[in-house]
């Protein structure tokens, strides 16, 4: 499934990072790469963006962009 579908509190392992251009490079640079474990911490009050935890830090990305990331739920 894609990362935007992952419920708050659930974790997954990234299997692929799609999309293109600056956004994709930024995601890769921030450590969102295949085999990385990521947890959805919370969803913003208005329903978007989402807060993620990975590699010992917290990151926020928009749902539209999270749609490009495939994860395997654990």
């Amino acid at each position: 499934m894609t990362l935007d579908k992952l419920e708050a509190g659930k974790s997954g392992i990234i299997t692929s990072v799609g999309g293109e251009g600056a956004l994709r490079l930024r995601l890769l640079d921030m450590g969102l790469i295949p085999k990385t474990q990521v947890t959805v911490v919370k969803v913003a009050p208005m329903g978007d963006p989402i807060e993620l935890r990975l590699r010992g830090y917290e990151l926020t990305i928009r749902k539209d962009d999270a749609r490009n990331i495939e994860v395997e739920v654990i």
Binding site: M30, P49, R62
Partner: peptide, 11 residues
């Protein structure tokens, strides 16, 4: 055009 991606750390 493309706005800079909103990928932001929450320190």
């Amino acid at each position: 055009g493309n706005p800079v991606p909103f990928v932001m750390e929450l320190p």
